[in-house]
Amino acid sequence: MLQFSFWDILSNLLIATQWTIVLSLIAFVCGGVVGLILLFMRVSGVTPLEWFTKGYIEFFQGTPLLMQLFLFFFGIALFGVEVSPWMAATLALTFWTSAFLTEIWRGCVDSIPKGQWEASSSLALTYIEQMRYVILPQASRIAVAPTVGFSVQVVKGTALASIIGFVELTKAGTMLNNATFRPFLVYSLVALIYFCLCYPLSWGAKKLEGRLNVAR
């Protein structure tokens, strides 16, 4: 029988951590792009677009991420497309992230005084120009801290991809546990690695928040 030393367990977990990081980055970047598009729709003042984004956000914030993963995993397969756990996890996490980011950023846009909108529209700026040159530069300053804070949720969210068979940190932990029968050690290490990934982000978000309070 193959024997696993402490270092074997740790190195295998660290290899799998790469996939947690990759998945987090993809979900966060793609979710950010989709979220930005949704934000433009959400504050556009066009009623059907606003209703659509409201429904979208309600669905992705009101259902468990696990259910969304299942729905993407089995839903896409209905179209006759072969679905890898990788694809389902990326899609579900992207949409889930985008819903939360849109809602966070909408709060930031809402906090910009109405006069800014009125002034820029009186200068004959189009909606896109208003957002690009007037609203977003101001809103993004406020948005940085909560966005970094939310990235912690994304990293933790990727742990659920293990359930549909994507091999990242949590799944690697489960597999190593099955091979070594040392659950206490394995899951402690898994938790510790997640902590090392997430704590700097939490800490950064807190610092950024503090800096913002001083600036105002």
């Binding site: 933790k156 659920l160 949590t170 899951y187 898994v190 938790a191 997640y194 902590f195």
Partner: peptide, 20 residues
């Protein structure tokens, strides 16, 4: 800080599989 910076599923696995 420990709870807020680790996924719920890992906490659950730790309690259910690790504590025994």
């Amino acid at each position: 800080e420990l709870i807020r910076n680790t996924p719920f599923i890992v906490q659950l696995f730790f309690i259910f599989f690790g504590l025994p």
